[in-house]
């Protein structure tokens, strides 16, 4: 009835089906991997906030987020227990910083030193990326204008409003090496329209900063600004700061030890008066509170 050739084929058919089947079973893993592919992704949270310690980090406030910042620098810790290690004397800065666009952040603030009011613009120009089209670093441009609000010390001379102004220009280039370690270099130019005595109008500085995460929510941060200080009184030194970041949901606390009481760049980069060797240091903290004013639209494709 059934020719032998076909018989053989019939006998083998179930085996063929099983073989095919087995083959198909094995491949789900590789199919998942294949379909997941390698996507280009932006590296997030190189630093916890927009400042490393005193100076700017490469980070910006996200679009639609408002960052209310309170910063305090106390008196020198040399004051000892009588001055409560400087905490009896406080200088402060209050600021509001808003993410207008994903790449653009604007800010205003007011600081005790020289009754300074300042405006800030920060542009996120390049972002570190991983995956198919990876990119090694993030880069931001930071520019501030500081308005000295003190009464003129010499009322008799011609005092122009422009003499109250100084400017900050910084390029922050940072890389998040892994989930714990981030590093940044920050070439800096500060221009003062009116410089004291024989001091130059332009001050150049090179900043380096880093972060090392101890736990997912806390990190040690450090920052150093080398200032090219021709003709600046020798009592001033370079700014070096160490800090500790603690994140609690929508707050970030940064507590620090620094040799500068100034909070604005035209002070702490130019005039840090304390010496680390002599223990002439200042305790300070930054508190950031984030408010989401505009929520992200869920991508309902």
């Amino acid at each position: 009835m059934v020719p032998p050739k076909i018989k053989v084929l019939l006998i083998f058919m179930p085996f063929m089906a099983v073989a095919f089947h087995l083959n198909a079973q094995d491949d789900l893993d590789s199919l998942l991997t294949k379909e997941l592919g390698v996507k280009t992704e932006e590296v997030y949270a190189t630093f916890k906030t927009t400042r490393i310690v005193n100076g700017h980090s490469v980070e910006r406030v996200r679009e639609g987020d408002l960052d209310f910042r309170i910063a305090h620098r106390f008196g020198t810790v040399k004051g000892g227990a009588y001055e409560f290690f400087g905490i009896d004397q406080s200088t402060s800065q209050f600021g509001l910083e808003y993410g207008v666009k994903d790449f653009l952040m604007l800010g205003i603030s007011r600081a005790t030193w020289q009754k300074t009011t300042s405006g800030l613009i920060k542009l996120s120009l390049l972002r570190q990326k991983t995956g198919e089209k990876s990119f090694p670093v993030s880069m931001s441009y930071i520019s501030s204008v500081f308005v000295n609000g003190m009464k003129w010390s010499d009322e008799s001379r011609d005092n122009y409003f422009t003499s109250r102004l100084s400017y900050l220009h910084q390029i922050a280039v940072a890389r998040k090496f892994n989930s714990s370690l981030s590093f940044q270099v920050t070439p800096t130019l500060i221009h003062r329209n009116l410089a004291q005595g024989s001091e130059p109008n332009d001050i150049y500085a090179a900043g380096v900063g880093g972060r090392y995460k101890i736990t997912v929510r806390s990190a040690i941060v450090g920052e150093y600004f080398y200032t090219f200080r021709k003709e600046i009184p020798e009592e001033y030194t370079d700014c070096f700061s160490l800090g500790f970041d603690i994140e609690t949901g929508s707050h970030v606390f940064q507590i620090m030890l620094t040799n500068s009481q100034g909070i604005t760049e035209n002070n702490f980069i130019v005039y840090p008066a304390g010496k680390w060797k002599k223990g002439d240091l200042f305790i300070g903290f930054n508190i950031c509170r984030f408010f989401t004013l505009k929520s992200e639209k869920k991508s309902l494709e």
Partner: peptide, 18 residues
């Protein structure tokens, strides 16, 4: 994963699921 709060996305990725 997308979130209503951009900060929630960052915290989710950075602090929770790593």
């Amino acid at each position: 994963f997308s979130f209503e709060l951009p900060l929630a996305r960052e915290h989710f990725n950075e602090n929770y699921v790593e």
